[in-house]
Protein backbone atom coordinates (compact mmCIF):
# COMPACT_ATOMS: atom_id res chain seq x y z
CA UNK A 1 0.00 0.00 0.00
CA UNK A 2 1.42 3.30 -1.14
CA UNK A 3 1.25 6.07 1.43
CA UNK A 4 0.94 9.68 0.28
CA UNK A 5 3.58 12.27 1.05
CA UNK A 6 3.33 13.78 4.53
CA UNK A 7 1.44 17.03 4.72
CA UNK A 8 0.08 16.87 1.18
CA UNK A 9 -3.65 17.49 0.78
CA UNK A 10 -4.75 18.09 -2.77
CA UNK A 11 -8.46 18.59 -2.18
CA UNK A 12 -8.65 22.35 -2.02
CA UNK A 13 -9.26 22.39 1.72
CA UNK A 14 -6.43 24.91 2.17
CA UNK A 15 -8.45 27.62 0.36
CA UNK A 16 -11.28 27.58 2.88
CA UNK A 17 -8.92 27.60 5.82
CA UNK A 18 -9.00 31.39 5.72
CA UNK A 19 -11.77 31.35 8.31
CA UNK A 20 -11.24 28.73 11.00
CA UNK A 21 -14.26 26.75 12.16
CA UNK A 22 -13.14 26.75 15.78
CA UNK A 23 -10.74 29.29 17.19
CA UNK A 24 -9.74 29.35 20.86
CA UNK A 25 -7.33 31.91 22.33
CA UNK A 26 -6.15 31.76 25.93
CA UNK A 27 -9.20 29.74 26.92
CA UNK A 28 -9.63 29.20 30.65
CA UNK A 29 -12.35 27.44 32.57
CA UNK A 30 -12.51 27.30 36.34
CA UNK A 31 -15.24 25.26 38.02
CA UNK A 32 -16.31 26.36 41.48
CA UNK A 33 -16.74 23.19 43.48
CA UNK A 34 -17.34 22.43 47.14
CA UNK A 35 -13.61 21.71 47.48
CA UNK A 36 -12.69 25.08 46.03
CA UNK A 37 -11.96 26.17 42.46
CA UNK A 38 -10.81 23.57 39.93
CA UNK A 39 -8.96 24.67 36.84
CA UNK A 40 -10.47 22.50 34.12
CA UNK A 41 -8.83 24.29 31.19
CA UNK A 42 -5.76 26.50 31.25
CA UNK A 43 -4.58 28.80 28.44
CA UNK A 44 -5.88 26.67 25.61
CA UNK A 45 -5.04 27.88 22.11
CA UNK A 46 -6.52 25.93 19.23
CA UNK A 47 -7.43 26.47 15.61
CA UNK A 48 -9.58 23.99 13.73
CA UNK A 49 -9.99 24.44 10.00
CA UNK A 50 -12.96 23.47 7.89
CA UNK A 51 -13.05 19.77 7.13
CA UNK A 52 -10.48 18.90 9.77
CA UNK A 53 -10.78 15.71 11.77
CA UNK A 54 -9.48 16.71 15.19
CA UNK A 55 -8.90 14.21 17.96
CA UNK A 56 -8.52 15.22 21.58
CA UNK A 57 -6.50 12.67 23.49
CA UNK A 58 -5.32 12.54 27.07
CA UNK A 59 -5.85 10.84 30.42
CA UNK A 60 -9.08 11.39 32.32
CA UNK A 61 -9.31 14.81 33.92
CA UNK A 62 -7.26 16.49 31.17
CA UNK A 63 -10.25 18.54 30.05
CA UNK A 64 -10.73 16.98 26.63
CA UNK A 65 -14.44 16.47 27.15
CA UNK A 66 -14.73 19.89 28.79
CA UNK A 67 -13.10 21.52 25.76
CA UNK A 68 -15.55 19.74 23.45
CA UNK A 69 -18.43 20.85 25.67
CA UNK A 70 -17.17 24.45 25.53
CA UNK A 71 -17.18 24.29 21.74
CA UNK A 72 -20.76 22.98 21.87
CA UNK A 73 -21.80 25.75 24.30
CA UNK A 74 -22.61 23.19 26.99
CA UNK A 75 -19.98 24.79 29.24
CA UNK A 76 -19.01 28.42 29.29
CA UNK A 77 -15.33 29.40 29.54
CA UNK A 78 -14.39 31.77 32.36
CA UNK A 79 -11.59 33.40 30.39
CA UNK A 80 -10.19 33.83 26.88
CA UNK A 81 -12.07 33.83 23.59
CA UNK A 82 -13.75 31.05 21.69
CA UNK A 83 -15.43 31.43 18.34
CA UNK A 84 -17.21 28.90 16.18
CA UNK A 85 -17.72 29.83 12.53
CA UNK A 86 -16.81 33.35 13.62
CA UNK A 87 -19.68 33.43 16.17
CA UNK A 88 -19.94 32.72 19.87
CA UNK A 89 -20.67 29.06 20.62
CA UNK A 90 -24.19 29.99 21.76
CA UNK A 91 -24.95 31.75 18.50
CA UNK A 92 -23.49 28.83 16.57
CA UNK A 93 -25.78 26.48 18.47
CA UNK A 94 -28.81 28.53 17.54
CA UNK A 95 -27.68 28.24 13.92
CA UNK A 96 -27.64 24.43 14.36
CA UNK A 97 -23.91 24.17 13.91
CA UNK A 98 -23.45 21.08 16.05
CA UNK A 99 -24.27 17.45 15.99
CA UNK A 100 -23.20 15.89 19.26
CA UNK A 101 -22.58 12.19 19.87
CA UNK A 102 -22.06 10.97 23.43
CA UNK A 103 -20.41 7.81 24.68
CA UNK A 104 -23.81 6.29 25.35
CA UNK A 105 -26.12 6.26 22.35
CA UNK A 106 -28.81 7.90 24.49
CA UNK A 107 -31.64 6.80 22.23
CA UNK A 108 -35.13 7.20 23.67
CA UNK A 109 -36.37 3.69 24.41
CA UNK A 110 -39.95 4.70 23.66
CA UNK A 111 -39.15 5.85 20.13
CA UNK A 112 -38.24 3.71 17.14
CA UNK A 113 -34.84 4.24 15.49
CA UNK A 114 -36.49 6.43 12.87
CA UNK A 115 -38.39 8.23 15.63
CA UNK A 116 -35.15 8.94 17.46
CA UNK A 117 -33.47 10.33 14.38
CA UNK A 118 -36.57 12.42 13.69
CA UNK A 119 -36.42 13.97 17.18
CA UNK A 120 -34.00 16.86 16.43
CA UNK A 121 -35.88 17.48 13.19
CA UNK A 122 -39.18 17.78 15.07
CA UNK A 123 -37.60 20.17 17.52
CA UNK A 124 -36.13 22.29 14.75
CA UNK A 125 -39.47 22.39 12.97
CA UNK A 126 -38.77 20.58 9.71
CA UNK A 127 -41.98 19.62 7.93
CA UNK A 128 -43.24 16.02 7.83
CA UNK A 129 -42.07 15.11 4.34
CA UNK A 130 -38.66 16.67 4.90
CA UNK A 131 -38.30 14.72 8.14
CA UNK A 132 -39.03 11.41 6.42
CA UNK A 133 -36.63 12.13 3.57
CA UNK A 134 -33.81 13.09 5.91
CA UNK A 135 -34.33 10.08 8.17
CA UNK A 136 -34.14 7.78 5.14
CA UNK A 137 -31.00 9.49 3.90
CA UNK A 138 -29.02 9.35 7.14
CA UNK A 139 -30.13 5.77 7.87
CA UNK A 140 -28.56 4.86 4.57
CA UNK A 141 -25.47 6.90 5.39
CA UNK A 142 -24.78 4.89 8.56
CA UNK A 143 -25.83 1.60 6.93
CA UNK A 144 -28.96 1.10 9.00
CA UNK A 145 -31.38 1.07 6.11
CA UNK A 146 -34.41 -1.05 6.99
CA UNK A 147 -33.94 -0.68 10.75
CA UNK A 148 -36.03 2.48 11.08
CA UNK A 149 -39.04 0.72 12.59
CA UNK A 150 -37.05 -1.23 15.19
CA UNK A 151 -36.87 -0.11 18.79
CA UNK A 152 -33.41 0.60 20.27
CA UNK A 153 -33.36 -2.53 22.45
CA UNK A 154 -33.69 -4.65 19.34
CA UNK A 155 -30.31 -3.39 18.08
CA UNK A 156 -26.74 -4.20 19.16
CA UNK A 157 -24.63 -1.58 20.94
CA UNK A 158 -22.69 -0.77 17.78
CA UNK A 159 -25.88 -0.32 15.77
CA UNK A 160 -27.34 1.92 18.47
CA UNK A 161 -24.26 4.11 18.33
CA UNK A 162 -24.57 4.30 14.54
CA UNK A 163 -28.18 5.40 15.00
CA UNK A 164 -27.03 8.13 17.36
CA UNK A 165 -24.50 9.29 14.73
CA UNK A 166 -27.32 9.32 12.18
CA UNK A 167 -29.33 11.47 14.57
CA UNK A 168 -26.44 13.93 14.81
CA UNK A 169 -26.16 14.06 11.02
CA UNK A 170 -29.86 14.47 10.30
CA UNK A 171 -30.04 18.25 10.47
CA UNK A 172 -26.92 19.07 8.46
CA UNK A 173 -24.80 20.47 11.24
CA UNK A 174 -21.39 21.18 9.76
CA UNK A 175 -19.55 20.31 12.96
CA UNK A 176 -19.81 16.82 14.37
CA UNK A 177 -18.63 16.55 17.97
CA UNK A 178 -18.08 13.05 19.29
CA UNK A 179 -17.26 12.36 22.93
CA UNK A 180 -15.67 8.89 23.14
CA UNK A 181 -18.43 7.58 20.92
CA UNK A 182 -17.02 4.06 20.69
CA UNK A 183 -15.53 3.85 24.20
CA UNK A 184 -18.09 1.31 25.37
CA UNK A 185 -17.81 -0.99 22.34
CA UNK A 186 -15.52 -3.96 21.77
CA UNK A 187 -12.47 -3.58 19.59
CA UNK A 188 -13.76 -5.37 16.51
CA UNK A 189 -16.92 -3.27 16.36
CA UNK A 190 -14.83 -0.23 17.11
CA UNK A 191 -12.48 -0.84 14.16
CA UNK A 192 -15.41 -1.19 11.83
CA UNK A 193 -17.13 1.96 13.10
CA UNK A 194 -13.85 3.90 12.84
CA UNK A 195 -13.64 2.93 9.18
CA UNK A 196 -17.23 4.00 8.70
CA UNK A 197 -16.68 7.33 10.40
CA UNK A 198 -13.80 8.01 8.03
CA UNK A 199 -16.00 7.16 5.05
CA UNK A 200 -18.73 9.39 6.42
CA UNK A 201 -16.26 12.20 6.90
CA UNK A 202 -15.01 11.82 3.33
CA UNK A 203 -18.56 11.82 1.94
CA UNK A 204 -19.96 14.69 3.97
CA UNK A 205 -16.89 16.93 4.35
CA UNK A 206 -17.86 17.76 7.93
CA UNK A 207 -15.52 19.13 10.55
CA UNK A 208 -15.21 16.52 13.28
CA UNK A 209 -14.09 16.89 16.89
CA UNK A 210 -13.42 13.50 18.44
CA UNK A 211 -12.56 12.79 22.06
CA UNK A 212 -10.77 9.51 22.73
CA UNK A 213 -8.20 7.94 25.00
CA UNK A 214 -7.04 5.39 22.46
CA UNK A 215 -3.81 6.32 20.67
CA UNK A 216 -4.41 4.09 17.62
CA UNK A 217 -7.93 5.46 17.24
CA UNK A 218 -6.71 9.06 17.39
CA UNK A 219 -3.88 8.47 14.91
CA UNK A 220 -6.01 6.43 12.54
CA UNK A 221 -8.82 8.96 12.32
CA UNK A 222 -7.34 12.41 12.65
CA UNK A 223 -5.82 15.09 10.49
CA UNK A 224 -4.95 16.92 13.70
CA UNK A 225 -4.22 15.32 17.06
CA UNK A 226 -4.49 17.48 20.16
CA UNK A 227 -2.61 15.92 23.08
CA UNK A 228 -3.79 17.13 26.49
CA UNK A 229 -2.67 16.65 30.08
CA UNK A 230 -4.42 17.05 33.41
CA UNK A 231 -4.22 19.30 36.48
CA UNK A 232 -4.72 21.84 35.06
CA UNK A 233 -6.22 20.68 31.75
CA UNK A 234 -4.03 22.04 28.95
CA UNK A 235 -2.74 21.26 25.49
CA UNK A 236 0.78 19.83 25.45
CA UNK A 237 1.15 19.05 21.74
CA UNK A 238 -0.74 19.52 18.49
CA UNK A 239 0.22 17.11 15.73
CA UNK A 240 -0.79 17.69 12.11
CA UNK A 241 -1.00 14.22 10.72
CA UNK A 242 0.93 13.54 7.52
CA UNK A 243 -1.31 10.57 6.71
CA UNK A 244 -3.46 10.86 3.56
CA UNK A 245 -7.22 11.29 3.90
CA UNK A 246 -7.80 7.90 2.32
CA UNK A 247 -6.94 5.43 5.08
CA UNK A 248 -7.36 1.68 4.82
CA UNK A 249 -7.13 -0.23 8.12
CA UNK A 250 -3.65 -1.58 7.32
CA UNK A 251 -2.25 1.92 7.27
CA UNK A 252 -1.78 1.23 10.95
CA UNK A 253 1.24 -0.93 10.13
CA UNK A 254 2.99 1.85 8.20
CA UNK A 255 6.09 3.66 9.45
CA UNK A 256 4.37 7.08 9.52
CA UNK A 257 1.54 5.70 11.64
CA UNK A 258 3.97 4.24 14.15
CA UNK A 259 5.98 7.47 14.24
CA UNK A 260 2.90 9.59 14.97
CA UNK A 261 1.75 7.11 17.62
CA UNK A 262 5.15 7.40 19.19
CA UNK A 263 4.95 11.19 19.26
CA UNK A 264 1.48 11.09 20.81
CA UNK A 265 2.74 8.69 23.47
CA UNK A 266 5.70 10.95 24.20
CA UNK A 267 3.34 13.91 24.52
CA UNK A 268 1.12 12.03 26.95
CA UNK A 269 4.10 10.94 29.01
CA UNK A 270 5.52 14.49 29.12
CA UNK A 271 2.20 15.74 30.44
CA UNK A 272 2.24 13.12 33.15
CA UNK A 273 5.77 13.81 34.41
CA UNK A 274 4.55 17.22 35.54
CA UNK A 275 2.58 15.92 38.50
Amino acid sequence: MKIGRPGRRDDGVKDTLSQPVVEARGLNLVFQTADGPVQALKDVDLTVGKGDFVSFIGPSGCGKTTLLRCIAALEHPTGGTLTVNGMTPDEARRKRAYGYVFQAAGLYPWRTIAGNIRLPLEIMGFDRAEQEARVERVLELVELKGFGRKFPWQLSGGMQQRASIARALAFDADILLMDEPFGALDEIVRDRLNEEVLKLWARTGKTIGFVTHSIPEAVYLSTKIVVMSPRPGRITDVIDSPLPRERPLDIRDSREFIEISHRVREGLRAGHSDD
Partner: peptide, 26 residues
Protein backbone atom coordinates in the same frame (compact mmCIF):
# COMPACT_ATOMS: atom_id res chain seq x y z
CA UNK B 1 -26.64 13.59 28.80
CA UNK B 2 -30.16 13.50 27.39
CA UNK B 3 -30.80 17.05 28.56
CA UNK B 4 -27.50 18.21 27.03
CA UNK B 5 -28.43 16.59 23.76
CA UNK B 6 -31.68 18.54 23.62
CA UNK B 7 -29.73 21.68 24.46
CA UNK B 8 -27.41 21.23 21.49
CA UNK B 9 -30.51 21.10 19.31
CA UNK B 10 -31.77 24.31 20.84
CA UNK B 11 -34.92 22.72 22.29
CA UNK B 12 -37.22 25.02 24.24
CA UNK B 13 -38.34 24.21 27.76
CA UNK B 14 -41.76 23.14 26.49
CA UNK B 15 -40.19 20.82 23.94
CA UNK B 16 -37.89 19.32 26.57
CA UNK B 17 -40.96 18.61 28.66
CA UNK B 18 -43.09 17.16 25.87
CA UNK B 19 -40.43 15.15 24.07
CA UNK B 20 -38.32 13.95 26.98
CA UNK B 21 -39.55 14.50 30.52
CA UNK B 22 -43.16 13.49 30.01
CA UNK B 23 -42.57 10.24 28.07
CA UNK B 24 -39.69 9.34 30.42
CA UNK B 25 -42.05 9.64 33.39
CA UNK B 26 -44.67 7.24 32.02
Amino acid sequence: MQLDLLKTWGASEGQTFRKLRLPASM
